[in-house]
Design a protein around this nucleic acid. Structure first.
Lengths: 345, 345
DNA sequence: CTGTTAGCGCGTTCAG
DNA sequence: CTGAACGCGCTAACAG
């Protein structure tokens, strides 16, 4: 018997350095099963054996193989998060909060970056599904048909965040980008601005905010609104360039930016050219509550609360994963936004 | 026989929605093995069968279970990346580049956020090791003894990035934070600045840059350098606050910041108070080549090339993972940095 | 070119 | 309270 175990290395042996439950068990003089229980459900094991096992665990430096565990239980404790990019500060707060909330509940995050490309998202969904995540978080609500189909068929809980829609795949937590555009338009009109310009990154949601803003202005009788669109992700540099291009046209009263980073770029270029913000031209940004450029005194912004989105999404998932049978009524949350005026008048 | 297969659902059956190799094989009239080969090594399969199998794959919507594959092959195609935070722009370029380079080579990234806490890193290393990553990337070279020990014992390739040390765990790609501090000091002295102040986040490497800067000044005869240290991660808001505190002392010629975000905060607060940058006080930042505040015309900065670090790390890992036997001589790279003066004089 | 056998490391299940 | 048997889904190794 011993013989058939020890030299049972007809294969590689050097599988790695991995210590297995078996190894620990042998050292502790028990079965693998007892070691497993000691680690997962210690209350089911007599104290004496438990201590012996724990010693053996330490002595061997055993690290449980989560792959094997996941395969056996059909629970990976992995959450897939699909994000356009981390090259912009807009998502960072949400990601941090979501990851730490999930981590606290015992879940790890598998990150996929789509670069705002639907085809990339499609491919990532396939790969990530292969890891059998316990849930999937998608940024935005606009996905390729194949992606939607794959995701709909899956029983894996899905959360779409950062946007709203009438036809979510499953759960939904976000805010309306159309509403942002409209609110900004009304806010600025009320402040007596009349000559507008728009600087937008060409990501889908930024564009929707921008066009919604322009549409609302039209409805209010403002016909001509110059708009510059620059490639995503937005950077300080593209903000500066966009500002330069806008300057080639008439100088407006106020420039509305699809995101804070662009607004900061404008501030930088304006400083260089001696253009006063907000005296010569006012600037409006858009960004996260905690990391946003609203801390620049001369900038007005739309603030969204990314941390809330992250926390809500994580909590919704965790409770759904813990819940046994009833697949709770689908969650839909509008997290809203707030317009904040600049500090200096 | 058929009977012992079909109703062989003594267990849950609803394991999930997962279609298995078996399911595809049955539909295609072959064995699981043939399906596996069709997917991984199509050249070993006759075209006719291959087509039949591919049809079955499509028909069933089969998505390979990477957990099972990883368990069987002892290759997870997962790379663990330990990062202090993504709440600061400093790492974003590196992360994006590393992730996309790895993705192109068929590896996914498992992200762990340490919040600059060594104990958190220690815990994360344990959890992440459980996923049996094919490699581990650590930010920085300063780890808890237990972490070092665990990592040293592992045969998993390790890369420490973003710093240099004489005693790396394995591979090493970064730059010297001491050298940055010294270079900045000499640069500013040469520009005839004499009255300095430092604004630093209290992350380990930021502090090292700051103290190295101050030490070099001391060596050059400058004794008193006020320094404000604020909690990491740096934000625009803390930059503003730090500036305010520095203003309570004498106004220096130049303020050296441990990171661009703090420098930008200074610019914001200075704008509010009508303090001219760089006329009244100059500001020096530190950050990534592509996302850095160097695009602000009145800011001088130290630029590092995060993208290179990310790409080098990814490429080193991939080639090491592809290499068969010889564990190549350990890689050590100093990626250096560059001091860039402001645009406006 | 395709099938068979065996096992990756773990957890569920049921005996004892 | 502990153990034995079995299977999660896949692939390496060897037949044929």
């Amino acid at each position: 018997m011993e013989e058939s175990y020890a030299p049972a290395t007809g294969r590689t042996l050097q599988t790695n350095d991995s210590v297995t439950l078996e190894d620990v068990a042998r050292l502790a003089g028990v079965t693998a099963m007892t070691v497993s229980r000691t680690l997962k459900r210690p209350e089911l094991v007599r104290e004496e054996t438990r201590l012996r096992v724990m010693d053996a665990v330490r002595a061997t430096g055993y690290v449980p193989n989560l792959l094997a565990g996941a395969l056996a239980t059909n629970k990976s404790h992995l959450i897939a998060l699909l994000l356009p990019t981390i090259a912009t500060s807009i998502f960072t707060d949400m990601v941090q909060t979501m990851m730490s909330t999930l981590a606290a509940a015992g879940y790890q995050t598998l990150l996929g970056l789509t670069d705002y490309l639907k085809e990339r998202e499609e491919q990532l969904v396939e790969t990530l599904l292969g890891r059998r995540p316990d849930a999937i978080v998608l940024t935005g609500t606009d996905h390729s048909p194949l992606t939607r189909e794959r995701l709909r068929r899956t029983k894996v809980p899905i959360v779409e965040i950062w946007d709203l829609t009438d036809d979510p795949i499953d759960m939904l937590i976000g805010f309306s980008h159309e509403a942002v555009g409209i609110a900004v338009a009304r806010h600025l009109l009320q402040k007596d601005y009349r000559r507008f310009a728009v600087l937008s990154a060409d990501d889908p949601r930024g564009l929707r905010r921008s066009t919604s803003f322009i549409d609302e202005l039209k409805r209010q009788g403002i016909e001509s609104v110059p708009m510059e669109v620059l490639p995503a992700p937005a950077t300080l540099q593209t903000g500066r360039e966009g500002f330069v291009r806008l300057l080639e046209k008439d100088l407006p009263d106020v420039i509305v930016c699809s995101t804070d980073t662009l607004a900061q770029g404008i501030l930088a270029e304006a400083a260089k050219r001696g253009i006063g913000i907000p005296q010569d031209v006012a600037v409006m940004g858009f960004g996260d509550l905690s990391t946003a450029a609203h801390v620049h005194p001369s900038l007005s912004t739309v603030r969204i609360d990314g941390a809330s989105i992250g926390r809500l999404a994580a909590e919704a998932l965790v409770s759904r994963l813990n819940a046994k049978e009833p697949p709770l009524p689908a969650l839909r949350v509008d997290t809203g936004f707030r317009i904040v005026d600049r500090e200096s008048a």
